[in-house]
Design a protein around this nucleic acid. Structure first.
Lengths: 164, 164
DNA sequence: AAAAAACATTTTATGTTTAAAATATCTTAC
DNA sequence: GTAAGATATTTTAAACATAAAATGTTTTTT
């Protein structure tokens, strides 16, 4: 019903007006890129390993923290709600990929770690995951990468500062 | 159980290793920024207008296309599945914010448009939405903005090219 | 004209995600 | 030692999301 002659694909940016503020146009492009990459990773994980991005994310955080993380720490780092982590962790525990062990001296907390099987499965996925990201993001030169990281760092700091 | 001395906040980047590939580190920072901004907008929309981001997204696409969009076009532009759009549109229609009218000459398609009430409500939200984004993203200078848009454009193109 | 294929949407089933409530535990102040 | 408050996790209910099946429409092929 409407078309962007210069834009073959339709996405979030289809709603950007020519005279929109710089902040809006940057946001819509950021959102579009993130969605595209995320969808790519979801499709690949599904097809190659019959798993999902949240499950991969949880395991990735654990791999990075060999001594284990509590449910609350996982929630923070994965940037999702506690209830969400609880559900994903239940699945992975049932499949023997992670274990939730009581923390001596703190009966409220669980220490979540990858099992041997979990570490093994994750190693395969991580290798593929890295290759997929390189395929998508290595169009960015080293100097553009540095520039981009710096700008995103500013945005991140500002978002944290304005958090509500 | 693990700490980044230089990183007061925990997020996706907590899983980045020092020697990870550039592509991985860029991705994790991109994801973190997008999540932070998205969560900010969600919180604000909830608090100020008692609505959600997907509902706002749908209305924003319609505002941009005054002659209306079909369900399929909405699905593409919002980057979500058709069934999803169907559910959100049902809510908004029930609340009188959008209308779904038959298309003369094509009995399969619906033409979705904002109602007068929808346009009115959207105008208020859009004003606030822009202010929130400016608050978060105007830390980016005009030249950094241009640079960033160019790099993201490359990433977008590459993601489209590799779509599966 | 009939059959086949493509298309647009909705429905259904299943799973994800959040916010909020519920449960259980720990700490502190008294 | 106990009550009050803070903390950690799980459960629940509602919204969101996808894939696949179902329905109805249009186009193409034969």
């Amino acid at each position: 019903m409407q078309s962007h002659p210069t834009e073959p694909f339709l996405d979030h940016e289809s709603r950007a007006e020519q005279d929109d503020h710089q902040a809006i146009r940057l946001w819509l492009r950021l959102l579009t890129c993130t969605n595209l990459v995320e969808q790519h990773l979801r499709n690949r994980l599904r097809k190659s390993f019959d798993t999902t991005l949240p499950r991969f994310d949880l395991m990735a955080q654990l791999e990075r923290s060999p001594t284990g993380l509590t449910m609350g720490e996982l929630s923070q780092r994965m940037m999702v709600s506690g209830g969400n982590v609880s559900g994903i962790a239940s699945q992975l525990e049932k499949e023997g990929l992670i274990s939730r062990d009581p923390v001596p001296g703190n009966r409220r907390a669980f220490c979540v770690t990858l099992t041997r099987a979990g570490r093994k499965q994750f190693a395969d996925m991580a290798r593929a995951h890295e290759a997929w990201l390189v395929e998508l993001l290595d169009v960015v030169s080293a100097s553009d990468y540095e520039q981009m990281m710096a700008i995103l760092k500013q945005i991140k700091a500002q978002s944290r500062a304005k958090e509500i």
